[in-house]
């Protein structure tokens, strides 16, 4: 199963220009699956960075706009797009010029993969 999922993620990676890496982690930022190129910054793939998403969505929910679905961090050289699929977090790392809308549109294709993984995580 892991190989199939990795292959689908690798396919997605090729579809978006400037997309460096896709990570599927648990809520603590521990990686379950990681695909990507060596261009992705090591710092953005660390669990302590990814797990801050959990804190950010807690704060985001206080805005009264409902559950936070997506968080986009735009830096001078990179963009980090994170999706709330709790108990999992999906993280995309891209370059600064990458088409953010295209990355967001990948969500639909990722949903079946993530729900399968979430089930596997819940069972274990």
């Amino acid at each position: 199963m892991v190989d199939e999922v990795k292959k689908s993620l690798q396919d997605l990676l090729g579809k978006v220009n400037g997309l460096y890496s896709i990570l599927i982690t648990d809520r603590d930022g521990v990686p379950l699956l990681k695909v990507g190129t060596d261009k992705a910054p090591e710092q953005a793939m660390r669990p302590n960075f990814i797990s801050t998403f959990g804190l950010a969505i807690d704060q985001g929910s206080k805005l009264g706009l409902g559950k936070t679905n997506t968080l986009i961090c735009s830096y001078s050289q990179f963009q980090v797009v994170q999706m709330n699929k709790l108990p999992l977090i999906v993280t995309f790392i891209t370059n600064d010029t990458c088409n953010t809308g295209h990355v967001l549109a990948l969500e639909k294709q990722l949903n079946p993969i993530v729900s399968d993984l979430a089930l596997a995580v819940a069972e274990s």
Partner: peptide, 11 residues
């Protein structure tokens, strides 16, 4: 959601 896709197609 098609906004991202049309941007990518144009690019």
């Amino acid at each position: 959601e098609s906004a991202g896709i049309i941007g990518a197609i144009a690019e």
